[in-house]
Amino acid sequence: MSAFFDMGGYAATVWPAYGVTIAILVALVVVSVRSSRRRHRVLERLERETRRQRDP
């Protein structure tokens, strides 16, 4: 098991590479999904308002 984590002496190369990849991908998902939710919330509120204005 420790041999697996050691990566043949290249642990400092292999693990950061995978770590950075996963970190960037996860960050991209979090940022995208969050801003998408926020934008959809704002849009829904606005659509409700316009509907109310049109037929009160």
């Binding site: 998902v29 995208s32 801003s35 998408s36 934008r39 959809h40 704002v42 849009l43 606005l46 316009t50």
Partner: peptide
Amino acid sequence: AFLVAILLVRIRSELALWRTEALMRRQ
């Protein structure tokens, strides 16, 4: 597949933003 998924999420997000701005302009 990740590219496709994140693209779909982001396009929907952009569409919401553009639609919001269009509605605000109309208001």
